[in-house]
Design a protein around this nucleic acid. Structure first.
Length: 492
RNA sequence: CGGGAGGUAGUUCAGCCCGGUAGAAUACGUGGUUUGGGACCACGGGGUCGCAGGUUCGAAUCCUGUCCUCCCGACCA
């Protein structure tokens, strides 16, 4: 079997697609823009989901589930939100099919089964959730509400890409309700911190925390916080967002509460989400021309063991030692795959698990059995070394940590070397064209300048970094006075 | 939504221009030799050629229509 991967230098997009398909994460489907997440890809998602879920619960949140469908009248209640999403909504208009009288075996939409009110397939759940919160909140004693849901959403995107932008995707969305503005803002900031923590420490992907400019803000939000990551081709990718929604949704859905002094006020809101898009970020940021490189903490398999033998007899000799090793690794909390499939030879397996990005490989043969050794190989650097079998589990646990750290360091070095400070328009254009990455430049704060820059260079303001130092300068485009640098980049 | 490519075996594709018994590689099954970086031999199973019409003695191939996917672009909280 030849599973050649297109190299990054030949065709970066094709390289990415090859990794996803040939690495076994996902497949195309018969539905435009929708993918099948295969078991290996889903196991990766499950690990990410489990880690995040624990972090949400540790910060006081609980899970719930709200309907997939949103009645149109609810959807349109918060005007800006509705407007922002209107052009990419799937809409249910009928509830029944019937057999086609003109064509045997075919079905048509039954015109008599038209819904009185159309149902919008959720592109996000603020509307249905705030409509529900209205019933749950009367007093400050009912607050805060700290709910998260794991769900699928649909956004009818014009152009889709595996994981990065699919018509249907899996995500989590947190929706919280608070008694004060300050508390809600603190919540949005806390969750941004949770995301940054997760993406950096679990996915080994360094991010920049920041604020979105007004034009990039979530529809219906007052503040959108984001984490931005850098891909290997120099394009930025929004890895997560956390929104302070003010009282917009409370007003749209008439959600009021009595405070301690029995005064009525609207409830303050946040929402925050990350999606399967993170998998796309992971693939693009770490992998190489040999295949995926997965960080140990979320890799479905952290270690693969490959036996090398001639004939059943030798296999039997190895098996005892390997079973013992698997047991040790498992009790050390390591996710281990033992591939003793006889159909494929070792070389084939080596290549296959490199493609799948398994962080550490253990090869063990008769030679090792005699010497009391194994061959260890790490995926990220492709280094191999022969080590004693005694104390192997411990050594592997340490190696996994090292790999995790090393992948992060590499991504961080790349990211840091792709933040360029520029002070002139010529430089700005040149850096974006030739080098890519983030460009740190002064911006006069106007939407006009932002739009003009996008028009000329395709670069958008990815974020205004948190704790950005105030500086005196001149807007890189207009030359008008500016008070701070912001990060521009072309983005996915 | 504009432009491009494509739909034939599980997969990748050839065949189509010039109509005449559906092919290759790979994967799969059986047997054997192999096994420390993508093994080899032999035999074998597997396809209403996206769908619907039409032309023809005869259509994967020509004509018309239609559906779907992918890529590039515009769009993208």
């Amino acid at each position: 079997m030849s599973k050649e991967i297109t190299s990054r230098s030949t065709d970066y997009s094709q390289w990415y697609n090859d990794l996803v398909i040939k690495g076994g994460l996902a497949d195309y489907s018969a539905v435009r823009g929708c993918m099948v997440i295969k078991p290996y890809g889903f196991a990766l998602w499950e690990n990410m989901r489990d880690a995040l879920d624990k972090m949400f619960k540790d910060t006081g949140h609980v899970n719930a589930y709200f309907p997939l469908f949103v009645p149109k009248s609810l959807f349109e209640a918060e005007e800006k939100n509705a407007e922002g999403f209107a052009k990419e909504c799937a809409v249910v208009t009928h509830y029944r099919l019937k057999t086609d009288p003109n064509k045997k075996g075919a079905l048509i939409v039954d015109p008599e089964a038209k819904l009185e009110e159309e149902l919008v397939v959720r592109p996000t759940s603020e509307a249905i959730i705030w409509n529900t919160y209205k019933n749950w909140i009367q007093s400050y004693r009912d607050l805060p509400i700290l709910i998260n849901q794991w769900a699928n959403v649909v956004r009818w995107e014009m152009r889709t890409r595996l994981f990065l932008r699919t018509a249907e995707f899996l995500w989590q969305e947190g929706h919280t309700a608070h008694a004060t503005r300050e508390e809600a803002i603190a919540e949005a900031e806390t969750m941004l911190g949770v995301y940054a923590d997760f993406v950096e420490n679990w996915m080994a992907l360094p991010v920049i925390k920041g604020l979105k400019s007004e034009s990039e803000r979530f529809a219906g939000a007052e503040i959108t916080y984001c984490i931005e990551a850098m891909m290997q081709d120099g394009k930025a990718l929004q890895a997560g967002t956390s929104h302070f929604l003010g009282q917009n949704f409370a007003k749209a859905f008439d959600v009021k509460f009595s405070d301690k002094d029995n005064k009525l006020d609207y409830v303050w809101a946040t929402s925050w989400g990350v999606s399967t898009r993170l998998i796309g970020a992971l693939v693009m940021a770490h992998s190489d021309d040999e295949g995926l490189i997965l960080p140990p903490r979320i890799a479905p398999w952290q270690v693969v063991i490959i036996p090398i033998y001639r004939g059943e007899e030798q296999k039997a000799q190895l098996d005892g030692k390997i079973k013992e090793l698997i047991q040790q690794l498992k009790s050390a909390g390591v996710r281990v795959k033992y591939d003793d499939n006889d159909n494929a030879r070792p070389g084939w397996k080596f290549a296959e698990y490199e493609m799948k990005g398994v962080p550490v490989r253990v090869a063990i043969g008769l030679r090792d059995l005699e010497n009391n050794t194994v061959e260890l190989a790490r995926r990220d650097t492709r280094e191999k070394f022969t080590v004693p079998i005694d104390g192997l589990a411990n050594r592997i646990v340490n190696l996994l940590d090292e790999v995790q750290q090393s992948i992060f360091n590499k991504a961080k070095a790349f990211r840091d070397s792709h933040i360029t400070r520029v002070d002139s328009w010529d430089e700005f254009v040149k850096v974006l064209e030739e080098k890519g990455g983030f460009v740190s430049a002064f911006w006069d704060g106007t939407e006009e300048a932002e739009a003009a820059i996008k028009e000329k260079t395709k670069a958008t303001i990815r974020c205004i970094p948190l704790n950005n130092p105030k500086e005196e300068g001149k807007c890189v485009l207009t030359g008008k006075p500016a008070t701070q640098r912001v990060l521009f980049a072309q983005a996915y």
